[in-house]
């Protein structure tokens, strides 16, 4: 073989090897009947190197157009909060943090096409991270997915410079798979992801509280209670958020509701006792704590917590 021919066949072999891993035949789960969806998400162009912040902004504009959502940050502020010059891009964590600071709840998508399609069906655009290059030469890129069509196996995304760019599903699945199918649903706190789990949603809502956005957290907890009205974890979080923001009457009502559902839930008992004590109802607080002793609990940590609360109420009574 001549060198040139050799080189050519080497090139073909290498290309084949590199590409053969990409295009899976049918990435769709077989036992589902997917149809199609296309969401009207405002498009921003050009977006230079700031695909992270621009993706947030596009979703923010979308929610402004169809709900009472008002953003907290301008596009310029989003840019400033996500760009890391030496990395040449935006970290996933900072994408989430900036979206949250912009009063959008950031719910991590289950890493599957099924979850993605469920969100799109519910008119929730999803920001995904894809690797346009190879694992050994990554070109990371964020883009909002705006729709899909199962029949033609197409994904629509605001990928680069044209709105709703069509991409074959196989290609998308390959690019997306390289980020571990990372995606994030951004929603105003009045909305619930279609694919949400109670526990995971609660932890995302609580992240609002962690950074001092208690009002948004309370809204998100209330939204969650529409779907999971008797979820004790969510109720407890709501009660605490009310308590911490000095809405004592609301907090009391929620703690009592928890005890209606589960009269032995020790954290609600403890916090309600604390609330009663701080609103000058020490007798009732002590009676409440006594009910716990007869009912539960072998857990030493819970016992010592209850004892500490009782101790504090006692000692202030006998001062």
């Amino acid at each position: 073989m001549k060198p040139r021919q050799y080189c050519f066949s080497l090139f073909i072999t290498v290309t084949f090897l590199l590409l053969s891993g990409c295009a899976s035949k049918n990435p769709l789960p077989v036992d589902h009947n997917y149809s199609s969806a296309l969401i009207n998400v405002p498009f921003i162009s050009p977006r230079s190197e700031l695909c992270g912040s621009t993706s947030i902004e596009m979703l923010s504009l979308y929610w402004q157009s169809r709900s009472s959502y008002t953003p907290r940050l301008s596009l310029r502020e989003l840019n400033e909060r996500t760009w890391i010059p030496d990395k040449g891009g935006t970290l996933q964590i900072e994408l989430v943090a900036a979206a949250r600071a912009n009063a959008l709840l950031a719910y991590p998508l289950e890493p599957s096409l099924d979850a993605l399609f469920r969100e799109l069906d519910a008119n929730h655009p999803v920001i995904v991270l894809v690797n346009r290059g190879f694992s050994w030469y990554p070109l990371w890129h964020y883009a909002p997915v705006t729709g899909y069509d199962a029949k033609t196996q197409t994904i629509w995304m605001h990928f680069f410079d044209t709105p709703n760019e069509a991409m074959p599903l196989g290609t998308f699945a390959a690019l997306w798979q390289r980020s571990g199918n990372w995606g994030i649903v951004l929603l105003p706190p009045e909305q619930l992801p279609a694919s949400a789990w109670a526990k995971k949603f609660l932890s995302c809502a609580y992240d609002f509280e962690k950074i001092g956005m208690t009002k948004e957290a309370i809204t998100a907890y209330k939204t969650a209670l529409i779907r999971w009205p008797e979820d004790i974890g969510i109720l407890f979080a709501l009660g605490n958020a009310y308590y911490n923001s000095r809405q004592i009457a609301h907090a009391e009502q929620i703690y009592r509701k928890i005890l209606d559902i589960d009269s032995t839930y020790p954290f609600a008992l403890n916090n309600l006792a604390d609330l009663l004590y701080r609103t000058n109802r020490s007798e009732e607080a002590l009676r409440l704590l006594d009910t716990l002793d007869t009912n539960v609990s072998q857990d030493t940590q819970i016992q010592s917590m209850i004892n500490a609360t009782r101790q504090e109420i006692f000692s202030s009574k006998h001062k």
Partner: peptide, 30 residues
Amino acid sequence: ARVASMTDSEASQIAYKIDTLPAGGDAGAS
């Protein structure tokens, strides 16, 4: 402002893994 908008666990993830975390960017030059 950026650090303040992170939760504790987010901040410690960045502190320990920033060099290996992927950063999405259009980067036409790439």
